[in-house]
Simulated scan of single mutants.
Amino acid sequence: MATLKDVAKLACVDVSTVSRALNNTSYVHPETKKKIYAAVERLSYKPNLIAKSLRQGKRNAIGVVVPGINFSIFSEIVQGIELEARKLGYSIMICNTNDNPDSEEECLNRFRNGLVDGIIIASTGQNMRLLRDISASGIAVVQMVRKQDKEFSSVVADYDACGYEGVKYLYAKGCRHIGFINGPMDIIPYKERYRGYHRAMKECGCEEMVTESTQHLGDYFQDGYAGVAKLLEKDPELDAIIVAADLQGLGVIRALKERKIKIPDEIKVMSLTGHSIGSMMETTMTSMEMPAKEMGVRLTGMIVEHIDADADHQPNRQHVVFDASLVERETT
């Protein structure tokens, strides 16, 4: 592999001249530059960007830590992050944790010792001390979807309102036996969705029926599929099912069709975390849609603002909450 010295030798100039020409740090005669560029092309020289970034103290890279991106809201948020990062001159590195704290710790240490200027994370909440250490070392941290620590800026959705408005919408449709298939309650968005569901059910005078995933690594499709039997066992008059995430909704729809229960005539189905897949299904699913790409854009702007700011003049912490909007489709 060609080196800076090889380029200098072929162009018959000093190494320092090659460096100045390639980095545009000071004047180099146009004819000399022409010879240097010709040597670079002939040798297929590629500068050591890692070493360069270390010397400059900036990597122009953002680490993104998510539970997963398959059939989830995180895939669309990450798209928003990547597109905005590219506009701002940054690349992104994605790490999937499957909501496993050990995998998350491994990802964070890799980013900490690697080449990122900032980390955007949907955390399990089990590695907050490590995140604070990383932040203290000068790497910016911003939370997405899950606000685990008020000391870090965050971008989330109003999950409580999603649960509340979901129940109110179904109640207005005539539903009185509204079941809820939730995710693990120790993860903040699921806890807040339940809180909104609980409040609305109480106001409507309806009895709660809730099943939840007990594992972070659970199969959400299976949670939805199995949840139908559990809810029907609790209340054979079940007339509506709310799911926390679209993938659970897919399981619900499959289970109802196998039981020959008509959607939406007999049981209505809606998701509290809308994803684009909901509009592409054979039976399109009503959902509370989050502005995922806009959330990604906002996250990127916030992390870059932290990265670019002087250490003594960091921007104030921001906790941004996006509203979801109800999109009515065939399942209701």
Rank of each mutant, 00 (worst) to 15 (best):
residue 250 L to W: 00
residue 303 I to M: 05
residue 324 A to C: 14
residue 195 R to H: 11
residue 322 F to Y: 15
residue 285 M to C: 13
residue 175 C to L: 03
residue 28 V to S: 08
residue 322 F to S: 06
residue 91 S to K: 12
residue 332 T to Y: 01
residue 248 Q to E: 10
residue 323 D to M: 13
residue 326 L to S: 09
residue 282 E to T: 11
residue 133 D to K: 14
residue 196 G to E: 05
residue 51 A to T: 02
residue 180 F to A: 04
residue 174 G to A: 08
residue 79 Q to Y: 13
residue 127 N to C: 10
residue 77 I to G: 00
residue 329 R to E: 03
residue 301 G to R: 15
residue 160 D to M: 12
residue 260 K to Y: 09
residue 278 G to N: 14
residue 305 E to M: 05
residue 192 E to S: 05
residue 296 G to P: 03
residue 217 L to S: 14
residue 186 D to Y: 12
residue 32 T to E: 03
residue 18 V to M: 05
residue 26 S to H: 13
residue 133 D to P: 02
residue 209 M to N: 07
residue 30 P to E: 15
residue 8 A to K: 07
residue 140 A to F: 06
residue 168 K to P: 01
residue 64 V to A: 12
residue 292 A to G: 03
residue 267 I to A: 03
residue 36 I to N: 05
residue 155 V to I: 14
residue 280 M to E: 13
residue 114 G to V: 08
residue 137 S to N: 10
residue 114 G to R: 05
residue 329 R to G: 02
residue 83 L to F: 08
residue 39 A to Y: 01
residue 285 M to E: 07
residue 272 L to P: 03
residue 122 A to D: 11
residue 328 E to C: 10
residue 198 H to S: 12
residue 95 C to E: 08
residue 2 A to P: 11
residue 293 K to E: 13
residue 232 L to S: 06
residue 282 E to R: 08
residue 54 L to I: 11
residue 20 R to A: 10
residue 244 A to L: 06
residue 15 V to L: 09
residue 249 G to V: 08
residue 78 V to T: 10
residue 255 A to R: 14
residue 289 E to M: 14
residue 224 G to N: 08
residue 262 K to W: 05
residue 156 V to N: 01
residue 85 A to I: 05
residue 212 E to I: 09
residue 284 T to H: 07
residue 274 G to N: 00
residue 301 G to A: 04
